[in-house]
Amino acid sequence: MHITEGIIRGTEAIAYTAAGVALMAAGAARMKAFADKRPEHKPLLGMGGAFIFFVSLIPIPAFTGTCSHPCGSPLAGILLGPVVGIGLTGLSLLLQAAFFAHGGFSTWGANLITLGIGGAFFGWLTYRILRAVGLPIWAAAGGAGLVGDVMTYVLAGLSLGYVLSISPNPQYSLSGYLVAIYSAYLPTQGPIAIGEMVVTGLALHYIYKQRPEVLQTLGVIRS
């Protein structure tokens, strides 16, 4: 979910951008450490970035007559860790804002929090929790894809609802906006979240079958 240029303004835009820059700095530092520690897996950074960039740009039509897109950041978060996932998400969003009229520079921080923390962090966290309770890799990754996608839209609704509730001419209170936004997101995003669950689960299952040692090196599974 991209919040378009100009919707967030003033102090809120500055605060979101500052938070986004801090997250991005942490992500860049972790990416450098990842590349130094595992140079043979450096291409994974490019792959993860390309995956997030592509998946979060592609519009998928829903039966509601609107389009939306998956996130991609849950899979990147599981494979590369949440901080690296957030860094790659920040780069993807910057390119999308610069060249594809998706999102915006003034809303980059809010979009990074949404897609990075909602997708990469909550996806990673869900995967860890589900693995800790003993679920197989495909199920844990699928659950992570679902939760990461849903949390992305939860945070997007929260950011948007908050900003609109303090806008010049608010139509609802914050809770009213949240109900309206989530109810409008649900019919389109629900099926896409299920699709992201399937793709994330299948991708990690395939990697585990083909090259489990890569997952061990990355710390995704224990040896």
Partner: peptide
């Protein structure tokens, strides 16, 4: 089949005076 960015976010923002 417009995106939800336009169909939901931008429409609500316009109504709230944050076009």
């Amino acid at each position: 089949f417009s995106g939800m960015d336009e169909a939901v976010n931008e429409r609500m923002a316009e109504n709230a005076g944050a076009a």
